[in-house]
Design a protein around this nucleic acid. Structure first.
Length: 171
DNA sequence: CCCTGATTCGC
DNA sequence: GCGAATCAGG
């Protein structure tokens, strides 16, 4: 996959919107977060808002040539789809309930996380309206067997926790 | 462990 | 220019 002007534009947009490199990578598809970060630097648009980590301190030089950089296998594309499809038959449970109106990631039509890309340890939080094309899943990491990532677990179980607390408080 | 961005350097 | 490997940190 190459950096077409369209993809670069999208990269710039999402980066300026504050999405993380990995999020941008999954939305673009066909690239890793490293690729995204590398591109961001080459475009000279790193350091949005404030320097997330260190203000660029001189790092130790890498062992350089001694790094074998693994033969051909290292070049293998690592898309979330490829791995997910090989995984088990996707136990999806969360779709039936009314999806909460959560607007966070806006995944372009061509690279949404579909139901087929979910596995035992991906977040199955539905985003958007299932009856439209604007529908996809969070797809981030979750604990094995847990339907949602940490973030969406908090959202998913917040109402229930609140109710329990209320009940306890009342009587 | 999960994640984040930053950097180096072989390709 | 590209991006994997690595680093440094949360």
């Amino acid at each position: 996959m190459s950096w077409t002007t369209e993809r670069v534009d999208l990269l710039k947009k999402l980066w300026s919107e504050g999405l993380s490199a990995s999020q941008i990578a999954t939305e673009l598809g066909g690239v890793t977060r490293n690729a995204v970060i590398g591109k961001v630097h080459r475009l000279g648009l790193s350091g949005r808002a404030k320097t997330a980590t260190a203000p660029a301190k001189p790092r130790r030089t890498r062992p350089a040539t001694s790094a074998p950089a693994r033969p051909a296998a290292s070049a293998a594309p690592r898309t979330i789809g490829a791995t997910a499809l090989k995984a088990e038959p996707t136990p999806v449970a969360a779709v039936a309930t009314q999806p909460a109106p959560v607007a966070e990631l806006v995944i372009p039509q061509e690279q949404r996380a579909t139901i087929l890309q979910l596995n035992e340890r991906t977040c199955k939080w539905p985003i958007g309206d299932p009856s439209t094309d604007d529908f996809y899943f969070c797809g981030r990491n979750s604990d094995p067997g847990v339907p949602y990532c940490a973030h969406h677990c908090r959202i998913a179980y917040q109402p229930m926790n609140d109710r329990r607390r209320d009940k306890r408080a009342r009587g």
